[in-house]
């Protein structure tokens, strides 16, 4: 038996790992078929946010809803992207508690593929939400002025940031003793981060002490980079600072999350 078993492969090749990741990402997406509510969450929520902010605050903040929409839509994209990363944490927490994670860990598959599969399917879902946000904005007057390539770059930038930031969600998923708590932890961090930024209001209108925080907030930087790509303005420095923020989140949270998973 011993001689026989040592001829088995001792690890998974990266290519096979990617295929396993694809299978697990499929799993995350096929769930939508059984739970159409999830698609609703991914679609109606963005529509509602855009309409609500545009027509409720547009007049007050900038005297004109469409002018405000042009300013604020990139900000909504960042906030809803950050919120969406929490789905990754919720899903992971559910897998941990329902035992599906252990099932996967007992299979001869790449150690990283369950997590990667989940993240990939969530990034796809997030791309969908971002499309809905832009489409809704377009219908009520938002115009991307920098061309198709810039719009695609905006998608790329936002999804890359989400990939990095989702490590925070993954960490929340590993520490929450029930899936619902993940959302609680997540919102506690994401609400202040996304509102204490220039996502919804120009920085100049804020008191000085608040401006100091708003300016270093990665949400501000990323929002400005998206503004640059969608409606014109400087991009490179904001994008780099935004991604740097995401990287800091990942560098802090990823080792903690992996340690938690290993020590269970």
């Amino acid at each position: 038996m011993t001689t026989l078993n040592t001829t088995l492969p001792a690890r998974v090749s990266p290519l096979v790992g990617l295929r396993q990741t694809a299978s697990l990402a499929w799993r995350g997406l096929v769930q939508i078929r059984h739970n159409p509510m999830e698609l609703g969450d991914l679609s109606f929520q963005p529509i509602m946010f855009v309409l609500l902010f545009t027509y409720l605050f547009g007049g007050a903040v900038m005297g004109d809803p469409v002018k405000y929409l042009q300013f604020m839509l990139p900000g909504i994209i960042v906030q809803s992207g950050l919120m969406a990363t929490m789905n990754t944490g919720m899903g992971l927490s559910t897998d941990l508690h329902k035992g599906f994670f252990d099932r996967l860990q007992s299979l001869p598959i790449a150690r990283w593929s369950p997590l990667a599969g989940r993240v990939v399917s969530d990034v796809v879902k997030q791309g969908w939400s971002m499309t809905i946000l832009l489409a809704t904005g377009y219908l009520i007057g938002f115009r991307a002025t920098q061309g198709v390539v810039a719009v695609l770059a905006a998608f790329g930038l936002m999804l890359t940031f989400s990939l990095l930031a989702s490590w925070f969600a993954v960490f929340c998923g590993t520490i929450a003793d029930e899936p619902e708590k993940v959302m609680m932890y997540g919102f506690t961090a994401i609400f202040p981060l996304s509102f204490l930024s220039n996502a919804y209001v120009p920085t100049a209108t804020l008191p000085g002490w608040l401006q100091a925080f708003v300016k270093i907030n990665p949400v501000t930087q990323l929002g400005d980079a998206l503004r640059g790509l969608l409606t014109g303005g400087p991009v490179a420095q904001h994008a780099l600072l935004g991604l740097l923020g995401g990287l800091v989140i990942a560098v802090i949270c990823a080792p903690l999350a992996l340690l938690r998973l290993k020590r269970r």
């Binding site: 088995l8 769930q31 329902k98 035992g99 599906f100 099932r103 007992s106 299979l107």
Partner: peptide, 26 residues
């Protein structure tokens, strides 16, 4: 040799369950 062990074993229990939102066949 954990990876090789995994290709020999099956596991069923209180944990090691299935994804409840997928069908049995899926």
């Amino acid at each position: 040799d954990a990876h090789r062990v995994r290709s020999l074993i099956g596991l069923t229990g209180q944990y090691a369950s299935v994804d409840e939102s997928l069908t049995g066949a899926e």
